[in-house]
Amino acid sequence: MTIFAFFLWSSAKVAVITVMMLMGIAYTVLLERKLVGRIQNRWGPSRVGPFGLLQPLVDGAKSFLKEDLIPTAVYRPLYLVAPIISLGCALIAIAVIPFGAPGMGPHGFDLFEISNINVGLLVILGITSIGVYGIALAGWSSNNKYSLLGSLRSSAQLISYELALGLSLVGVVLHAGSLNLRVIVEQQATLGAATWNIAGGGQILAFFIYLMAAFAETNRSPFDLPEAESELTGGYHTEYSSMKFAMFFMAEYGNMINVGCVATLLFLGGWTSPLGDLMPPFQSTVLSALLPLFWFVLKVFLFLCLYVWVRGTLPRFRYDQLMNFGWRYLLPLAILNIVGTSLWLAWR
């Protein structure tokens, strides 16, 4: 393949995937409002379009048209950069996530992944760790005590839970013997759901640690202390309005989708079918390209529903409970999981 064709294909992939991601974020917001509505015995948005399906578009237009206020006391450069860092990191992480069968494009070109690299998992962790700066700088540069408290909480929370999150993934990496996300998926896909890491792989403990750390990493309820409305008015984005606020909002939902994708890849068999080899492969190329995509999207969708379900069910943690939980329970459990997995692998 010539460098020109490569460049053309890659830019097309990046454009399509970015648009899909933004649409995904918009409709995750709608999904959350609808589901939380049903949990609280009301309808949720239902006026704009059939079943309220056009609500995200209208919300987006509203954010664009609102007046953009910049308070006079803020530290301008960082105040303006912070939402860009947040949203940028949320959107970049999708670049290394494989969401369909390998190959499929012309000349063996990877159609369902922007770039397949051998340290993919670490890249995702690295981008997540950079994303903290968006929130931390937003709070600091706003020059507002609620914002500052929110961003301090957020930094402390992210540093604490990143450890548990990273350690919970080590078991999976030990199993696969690789940091390449495609290898990790293919290693657990041999017998379908029976060999997924969450079941036959014996990583169910790691999955629960990952789940809880991921809730904290994405600042979602029950760990949404950085923006606890009852104590901090709006947390780190108190001073932000119109599209800048919307960028933080989108970053939060983008991170939810990323976390869902990583959980799907590492614990739930990625794009492979839960039936594994029981189902004979399809003859048609279109079907065998679209079916993995369907399984992947379905798994991520179920994961997002779990997120919303938890939000609608659990009250917020207290701050000291959050720290105790992270350091005293999750971290030792994650280390125990590594020791257990290594022993099992050595004995086998």
């Binding site: 670490l122 962790l125 690295g126 760790s129 950079i130 903290v132 700066y133 931390a136 700088l137 709070g139 600091w140 500052l148 961003s151 301090l152 930094s155 402390a156 992210l158 540093i159 990143e162």
Partner: peptide, 17 residues
Amino acid sequence: IIVYSGAVMVLFTFVVM
């Protein structure tokens, strides 16, 4: 990136803030 930009420097900015 993970260790220096992600962890060490977050602590730095945390202390400064």
